[in-house]
Design a protein around this nucleic acid. Structure first.
Lengths: 134, 134
DNA sequence: GGTTGACCTGAGAATGGTTGTCAATTCAGC
DNA sequence: GCTGAATTGACAACCATTCTCAGGTCAACC
């Protein structure tokens, strides 16, 4: 079916995957590159961008956009369709599935005759720990 | 209360507002600038950017981001909080309010102890007319 | 209707994230 | 080990967006 385009296991990709694995929050390509450089890995920025977008395409990563358009990536724990609630202070992210949300979507799209519906939901808030510190 | 920063009525701003008024869909700054140029208006790109972000700040416009991070603006008919269902083919947009959605949000955020919640919902689909043509 | 000063504009330069280029390198199967 | 295709990295190129600043324009006041 889907032709697998022969992905290789290079140390750069391993390093990137590791770094993502280690992070609770969404990271930008720049963040990741900086973090890797800091920890001694010498990886080209272009490689980071390429790898991230490849992983996102393969569904291994979730993508989000900051308000100023920067792309952020995160390793998703949940397999299927889900959404994110992100702490605006520490970035900690909770994955959320919502049957109730999907119901609402079906109802609304149906009401206006829209078909083949896609959707994204972004929830931002302050997590309990950051709220406690404030 | 809010200090009104003395906004002037210039012909550039009028032209931009008109153009937005005329559009059912979300427009990028570039789109708008191109459209204005086409119709003979000679407006600097920087002015378009400035005006759009000012209007957005004032809540006169809604902002959206394309998948590649470009900012899109649209005149909102609805005053208060609402969401959008955008046709992926023609861009026609329906504004949607969702008490059910807000309920769900409150429930979910409460479950994880997140407070001070903000959210964005983007729905993309094919509108009845475009679906009929397909 | 002129004057005045703050606001606004436009052209181009600067910024910053992201992608393209291409020679050198590295993986993986033989 | 050998070989070819996938991958990498340094750097240029892109492109949306913002900054700069000299010159233009609005609006209030005379």
């Amino acid at each position: 079916m889907t032709t697998t385009p022969a992905r290789r296991v290079t140390k750069q990709r391993v390093a990137i995957a590791d770094q993502l694995e280690r992070s609770e929050a969404f990271l930008s390509a720049q963040d990741l590159h900086a973090a890797l450089s800091r920890s001694g890995e010498r990886i080209g920025l272009a490689t980071v961008y390429r790898t991230l977008s490849a992983m996102a395409t393969d569904g291994e990563l979730d993508v989000r956009r900051t308000d100023d358009g920067e792309a952020l990536y995160r390793r998703c724990d949940t397999e299927g369709h889900h959404h994110h609630m992100v702490c605006r202070t520490c970035g900690r992210t909770v994955e959320i599935g919502g049957p109730k949300l999907e119901e609402w979507l079906a109802e609304v799209s149906g009401r206006f005759g829209y078909v083949d519906i896609d959707h994204t939901v972004e929830i931002t808030g302050t997590c309990p720990e950051c709220a406690a510190k404030a």
